[in-house]
Simulated assay, not measured.
Amino acid sequence: MTSRDTSPALVADIGGTNARFALADLSPPRPALREQRSLKAADFASLQHAVEHYLAEVGATPKRAAIAVACPVDGDEIRLTNRAWSFGREALRRALGLDALHLLNDFGAVAHAVPRLADDERTHLYGPTDAPLRGPVSVLGPGTGLGVALLVGDDAHGWQVVETEGGHVGFAPQGEEEQTLARWVTARFGRASNERLLSGAGLSHIDAALRGIDPSVSVQDGALRDPASIVNAALDGHDAVARRALARFCAVLGSVAGDCALIHGARTVAIAGGIVPRFLPFLRASAFRERFLAKGRFAALLETVTVRLITHPQPGLLGAAVALRERHDKGSA
C-alpha cells in the first residue's frame, strides 16, 4: 500500500432489508472496519440517498468504495433483486465524488471474507474438525434472500471468488410435506425456487403453508407471520406449527447445502446469513445433517466435507474491504 492510499475507503453491504456501511483501513493484512452502521433500507429512496446519509453522519469523504449488492453486478445498470432500488454504476460513482467504485455481489463479498475469518468468527458444525480451510468452498446462507457463492484456491496460491445466483435454483421437494410447500409457493409465485423457502420470507411461507393459509393472501392482511416471531415461538416450545416450520426450514437447508457441495465439488461448506445464528442449537438437533448426507451413493463423500457456520457479525463488510484491497494490490483500483 502506498502513502496516497492511507485514507479510509467506504465499504457497504446492501441487502433487501438492511444497508450496512463502514469505513475501512486497507493498510493491515486484514482490513480494519470502523464507524459501522446498519440502516433500514426502507427508510431511503435510493442507494445514493442511504450512502449520503451515512457519510454525513460519520463526516467522511472517501475517494474509494466497494459496495456489495444483493443482485448480479454485470453491466452499468444495477437492479437489486429484493429492493426497488436501481442505479447506474458510473452515475453513482460521480454522484458520490468517488475516484473508484467497485461493485460486487453480496455473497461474493461474504466469500471474500471466508479466508480472513478468525477461529472465533466461525463455528464448526459437521465433518473434519482439525483441517485448515480447504477449497473449493460453497458459501451460502439465508437472509432477506438466499445467497450462494463459490470460493476456489488455497492460502498458498490465493483465493478466487465466483459470484452466482444459485439461490434461485428450483426447489427439489422431498416427501409429501415438501410437495405441499412446493405447490403453495408455486401457486403464490408461479415457480418454487430455493429462495422462496430459504430466506426470512421463506420461513414465513413455510409457516403459512403448514397453517393452511391461502397462497393468494396479501402480505398486508397480516396472515403471514414475521420470521423472527416464528423463530421465537419455535424456540419457546409451545407453538407446534412454528417448530414444524423451523424444523422443515433446517431440513431443506441441509438438502440444499448438500446439493451445493456436490455441484461445486466442495471440501468445505460455509453457512452465512442473518437467520441461522439465531437458532444454532435447534439446527444441530434438526434433520440438517441427515438431509445434507442424503445423496445416495455420494453420502460417504459428503461425510468428508467440513461444514462451518460464519459468526462474524458483518462478513459482507469485511469481504467488501478484502475485495477492494485485492483490487488495489492488482493495480485495478
Score class of each variant (00 low, 15 high):
91 A>I: 10
49 H>T: 13
39 L>K: 08
121 E>K: 07
75 G>P: 08
97 G>W: 11
98 L>E: 01
73 V>H: 04
47 L>Y: 03
102 H>S: 12
93 R>Q: 09
109 A>L: 05
49 H>L: 09
39 L>N: 03
79 R>C: 08
73 V>P: 02
116 R>A: 09
63 K>Y: 02
53 H>F: 13
104 L>T: 12
110 V>M: 06
83 R>A: 11
90 E>S: 14
77 E>Y: 13
111 A>G: 03
48 Q>D: 09
103 L>T: 11
49 H>M: 10
44 F>T: 08
106 D>I: 12
123 T>Q: 12
105 N>M: 06
69 V>Y: 04
103 L>N: 01
102 H>Y: 15
98 L>S: 02
96 L>G: 02
102 H>N: 10
112 H>R: 13
57 E>V: 06
55 L>S: 08
111 A>V: 04
51 V>H: 03
68 A>L: 08
63 K>D: 03
92 L>D: 00
61 T>H: 11
109 A>V: 09
67 I>W: 01
123 T>K: 10
88 G>I: 12
85 W>L: 01
68 A>I: 04
60 A>Y: 06
84 A>T: 12
90 E>G: 03
56 A>C: 09
72 P>K: 08
79 R>K: 15
53 H>D: 04
61 T>N: 10
52 E>G: 07
44 F>W: 08
49 H>P: 01
97 G>M: 07
115 P>S: 09
115 P>L: 10
73 V>D: 01
99 D>Y: 05
44 F>K: 08
67 I>M: 03
37 R>A: 11
103 L>D: 00
71 C>P: 00
40 K>C: 07
77 E>F: 14
82 N>P: 01
114 V>I: 15
47 L>F: 03
89 R>K: 13
58 V>R: 08
84 A>I: 07
57 E>R: 14
59 G>H: 11
54 Y>I: 06
61 T>F: 03
87 F>I: 08
83 R>V: 07
48 Q>R: 15
69 V>P: 00
100 A>S: 15
78 I>V: 11
59 G>Q: 10
71 C>A: 15
44 F>Q: 01
51 V>A: 12
63 K>L: 12
69 V>A: 02
58 V>W: 04
55 L>F: 07
70 A>C: 05
41 A>T: 13
53 H>P: 00
120 D>N: 12
41 A>I: 05
56 A>Y: 05
88 G>F: 11
43 D>E: 14
106 D>V: 13
66 A>V: 09
52 E>Q: 15
111 A>L: 06
84 A>C: 04
101 L>C: 06
115 P>C: 09
111 A>T: 04
49 H>E: 15
102 H>P: 00
87 F>Y: 06
38 S>I: 15
84 A>S: 13
96 L>I: 10
50 A>N: 09
61 T>E: 09
57 E>F: 05
53 H>Y: 14
90 E>D: 12
66 A>F: 06
53 H>T: 15
116 R>Q: 10
89 R>A: 05
58 V>G: 02
119 D>K: 13
106 D>R: 12
53 H>L: 02
71 C>G: 04
113 A>V: 08
95 A>V: 08
85 W>G: 00
60 A>E: 04
61 T>Y: 05
40 K>W: 07
89 R>F: 03
47 L>G: 00
86 S>N: 11
47 L>D: 00
98 L>P: 01
108 G>N: 02
87 F>C: 01
42 A>I: 12
120 D>I: 12
120 D>F: 10
74 D>S: 15
66 A>G: 04
83 R>H: 14
